[in-house]
Nucleic acid binder design. Structure first.
Length: 230
DNA sequence: CAGCCGATAAGCT
DNA sequence: GCTTATCGGCTGA
């Protein structure tokens, strides 16, 4: 009661959606809904910012990607089937969530960097240690999940509980759905917070959206997303 | 097995 | 802008 079933948030994205290069999947994910069922609650938000990290089969390979040096215990989810969660801890305090791409045996992923909260904003605020009241007016809502670490904290995602989950399984507590929200244009910029390949244009965000992270938000160019990739 | 350091965020100057 | 918290996985010995 009070919480929607995940089905009400749109149609579940099929695995084929993710079986493509990350630079194709990342803009396609803009506007889609990331949903987490935690106990009786549902926490969900629209993806407004994402970065592509390329697998080692690319030429040149992407030196900023965790999959850069091939499979390891940590990144094994990236080399499995597409549409799985890859969650890792960073700086001892935070987690970041990626979606695996490409066919099984090939790595490549999309880092989810920011959400526009749709469901469970009060609970997100609580998870983030913020005051639950007055979210709408004060602009606090846009800070709930504006950043990869904030996103995982807001939704309550951890490596131990959620790494490796199949996002395309109807029984999974973590899914990505399409509620019909249409995105025809993305803003493309360099990726944030990396040193290697720092100038590659692989960060995608919804132009003008207030929930995106980072100072580089305004620096980039608009590209239209081909209809077949929407 | 020890040392290093990162796809971060928050708080302070 | 600069600093720091705090950790696990990676690397090389």
């Amino acid at each position: 009661m009070g919480h929607p079933a995940l089905e009400e948030l749109g149609t579940l994205l099929p695995r084929a959606f993710f079986e493509a290069p990350p630079e194709v999947v990342a803009p396609r994910l803009l506007g889609k809904v990331l949903a987490h069922r935690a106990g009786g609650a549902v926490l969900a938000g629209r993806i407004v910012e994402a970065e592509a990290y390329l697998g080692p089969h690319n030429d040149p390979p992407d030196p900023a990607a965790h999959a850069h040096r091939g499979p390891t215990v940590r990144n094994s989810a990236l080399f499995g089937p597409a549409g799985h969660a890859y969650i890792y801890s960073i700086y001892g305090r935070y987690f970041c969530m990626n979606v695996s791409c490409e066919a099984e045996g090939r790595a490549g992923c999309v880092l989810l960097r920011a959400l526009e909260p749709l469901e469970g904003a009060d609970l997100m605020a609580r998870n983030r240690g913020l005051a639950p009241g007055g979210l709408g007016a004060g602009g606090l809502t846009r800070q709930l999940a504006s950043g990869p670490g904030r996103l995982c904290q807001a939704l309550g995602l951890t490596r131990r509980s959620h790494n490796g989950l199949d996002l395309t399984d109807p029984a999974s507590p973590l899914q990505i759905r399409d509620d019909g929200y249409e995105v025809s244009e993305a803003l493309v910029t360099a990726r944030i917070g990396i040193r290697q390949a720092a100038d590659w244009p692989l960060r995608f965000l919804l132009p003008g959206n207030r929930c995106v992270s980072g100072a580089k938000s305004a620096i980039g160019k608009r590209v239209s997303i081909p209809v077949e990739f929407r």
